[in-house]
């Protein structure tokens, strides 16, 4: 089976500074993958490079099919007179020039998509009036309506309260079950722990990937950060903190296999 996303030896330079050094990983179809890293670790740059907005200075990105993109938040004019329903329809035909004719089949497809993300209840509201979680659902419907093989989400949980975040994760899990590869960036991995079957951990512009068990370990993360890192597990939650004796911790540092 071909990979849904394959990233190899990726290097990206922004403003004269190399932001990503030799990042490589691969995702199979239907994977639910968290792209985890602190703010400024290069998550957004990696997503933008996968989308083709930023060109790498070395390495390559191969997509197994069309990619759908969900931005963190729409920078909306408050008066933007676009309903949630109209916005989802734009996912279907927004990229085409010309004069659209009304079509019942298209309408039906939009309603179906809205129902699939539990957005039917607020489909007639202006998109600027929706709550963060509601807007996130509409953005996901917009991205899914053209049936992409890969769904990229930029910090979708950042502006949500705990409950809305859990609901969005449950929705994305259903999406992944249907064979769409989900790559979701987040600075905190804990809300995603039960959902994700793969993790790409970014630090210092380097990445470690694998299952959570493989990657989120003291040795691996210490190698990534170049500093002694403690991984603490409490009640199936994970805390990643700088080690007590970080300055002397280099002897513990192992290299990533």
């Amino acid at each position: 089976m071909t990979a849904a996303l394959n990233v190899e030896g990726l290097r990206v330079t922004l403003g004269g500074r190399e932001v990503l050094h030799d990042v490589g990983f691969s995702l199979e179809p239907g994977a639910f993958c968290g792209l985890i890293g602190a703010n400024g670790s290069g998550k957004t740059t990696l997503l933008r490079t996968i989308l083709g907005f930023t060109s790498p200075s070395a390495g390559r990105v191969a997509l197994g099919g069309a990619a759908g993109y969900v931005p963190q938040k729409l920078q909306l004019d408050p008066d933007m007179p676009v309903r949630a329903r109209d916005f989802v329809e734009l996912g279907l035909n927004g990229h085409r020039f010309g004069f659209p004719l009304p079509s019942r089949a298209r309408r039906a497809k939009v309603e179906e998509m809205l129902a699939a993300v539990d957005a039917a209840g607020f489909a007639g509201q202006r998109i600027g009036e929706l709550s963060g979680g509601q807007q996130q659902r509409v953005l996901i419907a917009h991205a899914l309506i053209r049936q992409p093989k890969l769904l990229l989400l930029d910090e979708p949980l950042a502006n949500l309260d705990l409950r809305a975040a859990a609901e969005i994760i449950a929705l994305l899990r259903r999406v992944a079950k249907q064979g769409v590869t989900v790559l979701i960036s987040a600075h905190d991995m804990n809300p995603l722990l039960s959902a994700m079957d793969r993790i790409v951990y970014l630090a210092n512009g380097r990445a470690a990937s694998g299952t959570t068990q493989d990657v989120v370990r003291t040795e691996v993360l210490s190698a990534l950060y170049g500093y002694h890192i403690d991984v603490i597990r409490v009640h199936e939650r994970i805390l990643v903190v700088a080690g007590e004796h970080g300055a002397h911790g280099h002897e513990h540092v192992a290299t990533i296999p």
């Binding site: 989308l51 907005f53 931005p71 729409l74 676009v82 927004g94 010309g98 998109i127």
Partner: peptide, 21 residues
């Protein structure tokens, strides 16, 4: 003629780009 892509790009330029505009 450019109405739909223009609307999408006015909502979010990056998103429009990702959608192939």
């Amino acid at each position: 003629f450019i109405y739909r892509p223009l609307l999408l790009a006015s909502l979010d330029g990056e998103l429009a780009k990702a959608d192939g505009v």
